[in-house]
Amino acid sequence: MELICPAGTPASLEAAVEAGADAVYCGFRDETNARNFPGLNFSRHELRKGIALAHRHGVKVLVAINTFARAGSFGLWQAAIDDAVAAGADALILADLATLDYAARHHPTQRLHVSVQAGAANPDAIRFYAESFGTRRVVLPRVLNVMEIASIVRESACETEVFVFGGLCVMEEGRCSLSSYATGQSPNMNGVCSPASHVAYTEREGQIVSTLGGFTINSFGKDEPAGYPTLCKGRFNTPKGSGYIFEEPVSLDAAVMLPALREAGVTALKIEGRQRGRAYIAGVVRSFRNILAALDEGHRAPISGLAAMAEGQASTVGAYRKGWR
C-alpha cells in the first residue's frame, strides 16, 4: 500500500520525503484547496521546486484543488489546474464536477483523483466519476467500515485511498456547513474550516474559553486536553445534558487496521494534516512507514505511539470498526 503524506510548506514536503512518503499532497496558497490557512501552502515557484525535489527521490506529488469553485471566479480554479499540470504534478485531487470536467477536457492525460470532499461513498458514485472524467482513484470518506470498503473495492475499477491518521470531520465531508453558519466561510467554498481570524481564546473563571465567530464553543479546565476550535468539536448544553454532541476532540489512528485495510484491497493510505508542523509530518510518516515495513516482513504492526500528536490527546479507529452497529 502507498503512503500518502501531507505537506503544508516546502519544508514539510522535504520532511515527508525524508521520512519515507510514497507520495506527498499539497495545495496552492489560495482558496482552491481545503487547507487555505494563514502562512500555509505553496506558491507556483515553490510547487515546481517541491515536485522536482520529490521526483529526485522517487516520490510523487499530488496537488489538491479540492474546493468547490465560486460562481464567477472559475478562472482561479482553472489556473490552479493548469499550473499544477505544468509544474509536473503526478495527480490532481479534485472534488467539484466543474473542475473535474475542466481537467479531463483540457488535460486528458493528467491523472485525476476524487477528493474526499466529493463524498463518493458508494460504487455507483465512484463509477460515475471514473466514467465521466476518467478518474483513477477515489479518496473514500471516513464513514465506511472495512467490510464496506472491501465491497467498494470489489465493485469499482477505481483505486481506493483511505485516511489512516489525523483529524476527523463530522461525517458530512464536502457538505458540512457548520463553519459557514458561524463565520460565513467553509472548507468547501473558501478552503478553511473555522478560520483562525474568527477564533478567540479568553480566560474566564479559571477556564480557557474558545469562541468561533462570537459563538462560545468550548471551555477547558487547567489541564484538560484541547481540540481544534471547530463547532463540531464544541461542547453544548442540551435538554438531555451537556457535552460533545457532534463528536469528541479525537484523532483518527487506524494503525491497527492496516492489515484489514490491505486485505480489503485498499491501494493507498493517507495521513491528514497539511496544517501541522514539520515535527508532526516527520514523526507520523516515519511511524507509518515503520508499521508498513513490519507488516511487509510478516510482523505484527508496532504500536504507533502517536497519542501526543492527536487532537484531545486521544485516538479512535473511527468508522473502520463501527462498534455502535
Partner: peptide, 13 residues
C-alpha cells in the same frame, strides 16, 4: 525549530 508540533503542544495545553 520544527522539532515539536505546535498543534500537539496546543492540544496538550
Amino acid at each position: 525549530e520544527g522539532t515539536l508540533d505546535g498543534d500537539a503542544l496546543f492540544f496538550s495545553r
